[in-house]
Amino acid sequence: MDTTVVNTGTEGKTWGGGNQPLKASYGKMMMWFFILSDALTFSGFLAAYGFSRFKFIDSWPIADEVFTHVPFLHGQELPMIYVAFMTFILIMSSVTMVLAVDAGHKMNKAKVTIYMFLTIIGGLIFVGSQAWEWATFIKGDYGAIQTNGGNILQFVDNEGHRVALRDFAIVDEHKTRVEDQRKSGIWFTDNESLPTFTLEEVVSGFEANDNILIRTQQLTEDGKKTVLSREESIKQLKANGKAVVEGANLHVNEYGSPLFADFFFFITGFHGFHVFSGVVINIIIFFNVILGTYERRKNYEMVEKVGLYWHFVDLVWVFVFTFFYLV
């Protein structure tokens, strides 16, 4: 046994091992480095969004015109209000989380329980709001026409207010539109659902209403969308119109570039997934608190660690909010 050296003679010195220069527990430090790597992932997504936006800087959708809806206030244009509400909810739940951590330091089980509960409720409200926002975005509002080149043509009246397809399209009563089905072709597998109107119905409705103009994706000098003259509008619609687009999905997007929708789904989706997993982890910790696990362990560091994760989710949202909705 004496043949191996167990003493290096450096005990107690700086490089002798056993000292903790960062004065943080292993778990907390690992949580910090996980957060760092996750932050890099998110900034990768946001930077990719910036890349695509700079690539189409003169035709990118204006977020203020896309996210104008608030639940229960139907038909009103209220840009930013609902997202501001969501931001506030998330900051609020961050506050209750940090209060739970603080109560944990004081070994106050009752307070930790209450604050953890409030944090979970805040998280659930946020995830629910995001689901609603997705649903509204997917459903769409005004509808638009896609051109052969994949650009989007929207409709406005003389004063520049948006006009929905349903307000002017002339529905052909005698048409028979049959959705393709699996049995009607050998190689055919599936079909996208048919839009409410056909291209012909929109064109005939457009010709019958003299006061409707077309708005293209291109931005003017002062950052507004270009509106074409009546003659140009008809020409553009007839020459290039290809399909009716309602709402948004990964292929088409009635608000403009499909990339906008792709990034919206991907970034807010990835963030929403983080919020969801945060809520799940919070619930687990919440039950541990109730069962008295940390009371017996004589420290509430677990609450602090999930707290770090929860604050990080809030931190990411602050950036998503700025780069998706404000800038």
Binding site: L22, S94, V95, V98, H311, D314
Partner: peptide, 15 residues
């Protein structure tokens, strides 16, 4: 958020 909610203010300089 980082400094006060995540207590970065109270961590060591190194971390």
């Amino acid at each position: 958020i980082t400094w006060d909610f995540m207590h970065m203010r109270d961590e060591t300089k190194g971390l």
